[in-house]
Write a protein that binds this DNA or RNA. Structure first.
Length: 453
RNA sequence: GUGAAUGUAGCUCAGCUGGUUAGAGCGCUGGAUUGUGGUUCCAGAGGUCGCCGGUUCGAACCCGGUCUUUCACCCCA
């Protein structure tokens, strides 16, 4: 046997039945996005590396897929660089493009580039694949689809509220039980300010995040390991152990952060959001979680993350507010807030929980059996009329045994098979077999249309 | 990037302490049924046991390397 073909690590093919379900997810989020007034855009799969590099931290730079320059790309590289064995240096010489890592950074670039063609506040949605050179594992792929909704050019917290409504509606429609965890970067900054370690906020949140897994003592050990003094760890304890309802937590935080202006601003923001949500009948759980520290590279205000309650798979949606989204591309003071639905993880969740509605893969309603050239031409005329009536029909392309043609219809889930042989042609009738009941009838064209419609 | 596990027919897997010709179920092809699928019965095709090397009289099985897939950590959707 020939060498088996394969596809790159972390990528996947999708069979028709999988695509039916994937499209169900895409269609659902798209419809919800549109309901709230978002418009679609697309950006290229590849961006200039200068657009991508430095936006996701050192870790992110490593996970970028780089594209080799075309042609004889080594010709003009100077020998020092070639022999230096410095991948980073060489990379900038031989690669100037990369595959996009997310949809947010390309979107920021897009906004700057097309600022005169769009109206602010600009609400857009974007459903496209992104690529990360991560090591694949459960729920993690190297090529996956994100469904982003963002609004740029508005500071209003109503946008955050709207995004939460969207999350609520999407998961309500998909029938997935989720919890939306949120936090605010300003509160995290406030905490760091109070403790007196403004540069350690990432370490602190990462450590606190492990509370459930490893317990308070290990968390404190880890904090100490990160170079935070015992005294400061002591100050952190009430924050780590914060519990109760969202409003309980907010009350306690107000006390703790009383001396931090930025911290209090964060509290005001989340209080305003929670207040607005109260009157909106949000179904999903919304929970303030101080250990949420995702994407600290650019988030400045709200941070969101959604987890499925019934499947262990990491977050299926995430996002937040970035006050200076477009700043790196030269457009100052444009704030953005957005979230991203991870379609592939949502698929995995729904698949595991059997949440996909029964949808027929078959787009064909009627298969016309092929009895030979003469009969086939006769069928084509009938089929044309049916297609004009909006009925999906197909003719078996080869004049082979009935068994084979029936089998094809069965496997494809086609509900009706039409057989028109010599007798039917003479009588101007049609033999229709219902593949579900097994019942077969000899009828005239009008009856047939009624039967099949 | 770090640490583990895995790889046998198209698919899911069995294969004893190393022993001749590597098996099953499902699927596939053909037939029972030349105008009838999904059920049943009969027959058949299909494998350089991931790849390379080593140990051995002898390797699917033991050893080394390599690749693949999966899982955990880091990070993330």
């Amino acid at each position: 046997m020939a060498q088996k073909p394969s596809i790159p690590k972390g990528t996947r093919d999708f069979l028709p039945h999988e695509m039916v379900n994937r499209n169900y997810i895409f269609d659902t989020v798209r419809k919800v996005f549109q309901k709230y007034g978002y418009l679609p855009i697309e950006t290229p799969a590849m961006e200039n590396l200068s657009t991508l590099l430095g936006k996701y931290g050192d870790e992110g730079d490593k996970l970028l897929f780089k594209i080799l320059n075309s042609g004889d790309y080594l010709r003009d590289v100077n020998d020092d660089v070639l022999t230096s064995r410095d991948s980073f240096k060489l990379m900038s010489e031989i690669s100037e493009k990369g595959l996009r890592y997310d949809l947010t950074v390309p979107f920021a670039r897009f906004v700057v580039q097309h600022q005169n063609e769009i109206v602010l506040p600009f609400k857009r949605y974007q459903i496209q694949p992104v690529w990360r050179a991560d090591r694949p594992q459960k729920g993690r792929y190297r090529e996956f689809f994100q469904c982003d909704v963002d609004v740029v050019g508005s500071n209003s917290l109503l946008n955050e509220v709207e995004l939460i409504q969207i999350v609520d509606e999407v998961y309500k429609q998909l029938n997935i039980r989720v919890v939306l965890k949120f936090n605010n970067r300003k509160i995290l900054s406030g905490i760091a300010e109070i403790i007196g370690v403004p540069d350690k906020i990432v370490d602190i949140t990462v450590a606190i995040d492990k509370l459930d897994k490893i317990g308070i003592e290990k968390v404190n050990e880890e904090l100490e390991l990160k170079g935070i003094s015992k005294e400061k760890i002591g100050k952190l304890q009430p924050i780590i152990l914060l519990s109760g309802s969202n409003s309980d937590k907010i009350e306690q935080l107000k006390q703790i952060l009383a001396q931090s202006i930025i911290g209090l601003r964060g509290i005001e923001e989340i209080s305003a959001i929670i207040l607005a949500l109260k009157s909106l009948d949000i179904v999903i759980d919304v929970e303030l979680d101080l250990t949420l520290a995702r994407g600290l590279n650019y988030y400045t205000g709200a941070i969101f993350e959604v987890k499925a309650k019934d499947v262990e798979i990491g977050s299926i949606t995430g996002g937040g507010r970035y006050d200076d989204l477009t700043g790196v591309f030269g457009l100052k003071d444009v704030s953005g807030v957005g979230i991203s639905f991870g379609a592939d993880r949502i698929y995995d969740v729904m698949n595991q929980l059997n949440l996909f509605p029964l949808q027929s893969e078959a787009t064909t309603k009627v298969l016309f059996a092929n009895f030979g050239e003469k009969e086939a031409f006769y069928c084509l005329k009938i089929m044309k009329e049916m297609r004009n009536c909006g009925i999906n029909v197909e003719l078996y392309p080869d004049s082979v045994k009935m068994k084979k043609q029936m089998n094809y219809a069965d496997k494809k889930g086609i509900p009706f098979v039409v057989m028109i042989g010599e007798n039917e042609m003479i009588e101007s009738k049609i033999s229709v077999k219902n593949m579900i009941t097994g019942e077969q009838k000899l009828v005239c064209f009008d009856e047939f249309i009624d039967l099949v419609k």
